[in-house]
Structure formats: C-alpha cells, structure tokens
Design a protein around this nucleic acid. Structure first.
Length: 256
DNA sequence: ATAAGTGTTGCGCA
DNA sequence: CTGCGCAACACTTA
C-alpha cells in the first residue's frame, strides 16, 4: 500500500455500507475527497492511512479484501470505493464485520478503537513479552488475542502459536515459566512471519488480488481435528475456550 | 430447495 | 476477569 497508494489523491468516495463507518457517509466522503495519501502503517490488524486531510483507519474484521484496480475491473461486492485522480480505484470489502473510520488531523489519540492497542506482536522480544505478561491475570490464549495487550494475533493463528510453544490455551499466564515465555515469543515470530513470507493466508488476497500462499499444509494443528499431531501423533482435539474454539494436541499441550 | 451451522473481530453486558 | 450475545455475510453441510 505504501508503494502504490502514497502520493495518490482521492477524487471521490462511494460508500455502499455506511454501517462500517464512524461518521455519516457524507461526512466521510467529504472529508476524504481531495485527500492526498502520505503514508500507510499498521497497528495489529488496523491499517492506518495518513492523509493531508486526516486519517483513514481500516480494519478488515473477519476477513476481507482491499483491491487496487481500474474502475472497469472493480469487483461486484464491495463496501466502499475510493477513486483516485489518475482513475485507479481502491475497493474495500469485508466478508463479515469490518471498519472504515475517519479521524481528523491530529486527533488519532481520540480514536478509541486504536488508541488502546498494545504493541505489535511482531515487535516483541522474549523480554518484552515477559514484561507484558508479568502480573497479568487471565489465560494465555485470552491475553494473546487481547489487542490491547498486544496487537496482531487472531484466532486463526493462535492455535499453532500455542502448539509450537507447547502451551494449553487455558494456562494461566501468570504461571508460565521464563522458558515457556521464551518459547511463546519464538512461536509468535515463527508462525506470523511464515505466513507473511508466503503472502498471507490462502483465503485472503493482496492489493492486486493475488491469493496468499499460507495454506492448510502450513498449519500444524489448527482446524485439523482428528488428524495426528505432527509431534506425537495423538489425535488433535477441538475444544471450546470461551466463545472461540481452540485446536490442541492433548498430549503436547497439557493444562496442569 | 431450504435451513442450519460455522467463523478470521470487537463491544457491551451480567 | 469471564462467558455470552450480538452485529454488515459467505460458504459448507444436512
């Protein structure tokens, strides 16, 4: 997005799904029409697009696509479209829940959904993670998924992260040994960076519509109920952990 | 054909 | 702090 979008100027905005906005659609469109894109960064799952007219904050929620195409090649389904002055179009679509928020210049700290986000999980060293978990109540999976603790880990990756670290998702975080915290820090890096290196998950696409190369073959135990654990061959189990499911190896990841 | 189940997130509530 | 329900759907299975 930095390579392609920075320097472009928005000529028009079409909002097909106002419910994903934080302001009325007219306000959103008026604020960003004429905006010149300055930089794109991310904080966890949020994309922060800085413009000279304020911020465009995108969160794809439970999946979605951001595509850069010509107007003629736009997909049928989309939530919003930005047309640039050079004729290129940026289509934003969500599969299920997502946000496109506008924040006025200088007011990013007032945006509740991003202001409280923790550091990017990918930036955490083992020492950082230890410091982050020190004194925390709650279970290790809940903390990994809590974007205010650390940002960027979702349910689809957390299964393999915990398996790699040989931790049961319901382990109290406060009880982890230094070695377990170090293993967890390594696992976060390993799993997330593998997917990034392969261009992301197979069910997602990049700016050009190219599918990611991180497939089920790359996943160790997630979504593989009944299949043998790659480490010990015990059948993988699917368990309920609060409102989400978890996949675990019952032999490698023991609760206590 | 139709219906039900499932899930990649985040918020608010009890 | 936890579980639960809910909210913009698409896809698979029954």
């Amino acid at each position: 997005m930095n390579a392609e979008l920075v320097g472009r100027t928005v000529a028009g905005v079409e909002v097909l799904q106002p419910k994903c906005l934080n302001v009325p659609p007219e306000t959103f469109a008026e604020a960003l029409t004429g905006a010149r894109l300055l930089a794109v960064t991310n904080r966890g799952k949020w994309l922060l697009v800085e413009t000279d007219r304020g911020w465009l904050l995108l969160n794809l929620g439970m999946g979605g696509e951001i595509l850069l195409t010509s107007r003629a090649a736009l997909p049928e389904k989309h939530r919003l479209i930005f047309e640039f002055t050079d004729g290129a179009c940026l289509s934003v679509n969500f599969w299920w829940f997502g946000y496109a928020h506008y924040v006025r210049p200088g007011e990013l700290a007032d945006h509740g959904m991003t202001a409280g986000l923790g550091p990017n999980a990918l930036d955490l060293s083992a020492d950082d993670l230890a410091a982050l978990l020190r004194g925390r109540k709650g279970r290790v999976k809940a903390l990994l998924l809590d974007q205010d603790v650390m940002a960027g880990i979702g349910n689809s990756y957390v299964h393999d992260i915990l398996f790699r670290a040989r931790l049961h998702p319901l382990r109290p975080a406060a009880g982890l040994t230094p070695a377990e915290v170090a293993a967890l820090a390594s696992a976060i890096q390993e799993i997330l960076r593998l997917s990034i290196a392969k261009g992301g998950a197979f069910y997602e696409a990049n700016l050009y519509g190219e599918k990611g190369g991180f497939t089920l073959d790359d996943i160790l135990i997630g979504y593989k109920e009944g299949q043998p654990c790659p480490a010990c061959a015990a059948p993988i189990e699917k368990i309920k952990t609060g409102s989400t499911s978890s996949f675990i190896c019952p032999r490698c990841q023991v609760l206590g």
